[in-house]
């Protein structure tokens, strides 16, 4: 049971990571990165590394998202490469 939960979380985090790189809208990319952080956080919790999961939730989903949003706001919203 818990093994299949691992697989689901891994697949979701890979999907979020690939989508965050591929998407053109940088704000959507930031949101996908936050979702990736959330799935990584759940994965760390599932592996028993609660401390790492806590850091991932606080830093990955909380602070870096805000900093990335400010950066997108200060620069440009659409990727051109």
């Amino acid at each position: 049971m818990i093994g299949s939960l691992d697989v689901v979380l891994l697949v979701l985090s890979v999907v979020c990571a690939v989508a965050a790189v591929q998407v053109r809208d940088l704000l959507a990319s930031v949101v996908l990165l936050a979702a990736f952080s959330l799935f990584m956080c759940l994965l760390w919790t599932e592996l028993g590394a609660v401390d790492v999961a806590f850091t991932e939730a606080a830093v990955g989903a909380g602070v870096t998202t805000v900093l990335f949003v400010i950066t997108v706001y200060k620069t440009d919203r659409v990727s051109r490469d």
Binding site: V50, D51, A53, T55, A58, G62
Partner: peptide
């Protein structure tokens, strides 16, 4: 679980 770093980030 937790500590100075995580608590500080939460406060920030």
């Amino acid at each position: 679980p937790g500590g100075g770093f995580q608590g500080g980030v939460t406060l920030a």
